[in-house]
Amino acid sequence: MSRKDKEKIFQLRNRSLISLTNPKSSIAEQFRTVRTSIQFSSVDTDLQSVVVTSPNPAEGKSTIAANLAVVFAQQGKRVLLIDSDLRKPTVHYTFHTENHVGLSNVLTRQVTLQEAVKTSRQENLWVLTSGPIPPNPSELLGSKGMNALLDEVKNEYDFVILDSPPILSVTDAQVLANLTDGVVLVISSGNTKIDSAKKAKELLESAKAKILGVVHNNKKEQDTPYYYGEK
């Protein structure tokens, strides 16, 4: 393993779960604000599964997804965080767990959901890592098996968050958005271009996704790296 790879792994393993490690911080409070906004964004329907995506890589979607999972669990809900990024998964680094078995194994019927799900340091929060990277991610995510899995987890958990690949890179996020109850789009201040954000919104709308809102990551004028706004 090269030095660059080792440094990347070190950075991923030290990804901040501030909602867990420092729940009284102002940033953790921002995540609770996002949680409330998500809950109130769909008062007329039962919102149980949400996809978190971004236009491009390195805009903070996985950190947002993980911290949202923590604050929903802290509310007393049974929460499952699914790493549905079957191309460049990171959830196992964030939660310091192994990734030998996960979503890809469940979808190919090698193991059951119960055998693949892992506990976390946060009470009421369980994690389903990606598992081995398959050769056909989009096909697996759009399969009948994925539909069946989502039906199963909705019966076992109160809230399900899916960390998906960036929407402008591959079609995976569109596929998942069509299968779930809503989408949270993460954009990064000073990084995400306006055209990219607009294109991401158009792709989600073409997939008939319900865009719940936007998390504006690294928004300087907020005194915190997170900000939530409606689409």
Score class of each variant (00 low, 15 high):
S104L: 11
F10L: 15
F40W: 04
I187L: 09
D158W: 01
T180A: 07
L68Y: 02
P225H: 08
K24N: 14
D151T: 07
Q222A: 15
S143M: 08
E202K: 15
P23K: 12
K4Q: 11
R3H: 14
Q48D: 06
P23N: 11
T63H: 03
A197P: 01
T119M: 08
L204Y: 01
P23S: 12
A58N: 15
R35P: 00
I167L: 10
F31L: 08
S16H: 09
F10A: 15
A209F: 01
N67L: 08
S16M: 06
E156L: 15
L179V: 05
F10W: 07
Q74I: 05
N178A: 15
K208R: 15
E221G: 14
L113Y: 11
G182R: 10
D181F: 06
I194L: 14
E230P: 00
I211S: 09
V117P: 04
N136Q: 07
T90D: 01
G131Y: 02
S188A: 12
V186L: 05
V51T: 05
S26I: 13
Q39K: 15
G182S: 12
K220D: 09
L17V: 07
I82M: 04
L203Y: 02
L68E: 02
K154T: 03
N105Y: 05
L141G: 07
N67P: 01
Y228C: 06
V52C: 08
P134H: 10
K154M: 05
T224Y: 02
Y157L: 10
A207Q: 04
I18K: 14
K77S: 09
V50L: 13
T119V: 04
A65C: 11
S169L: 14
D85F: 01
K24Q: 13
S49V: 14
E59T: 06
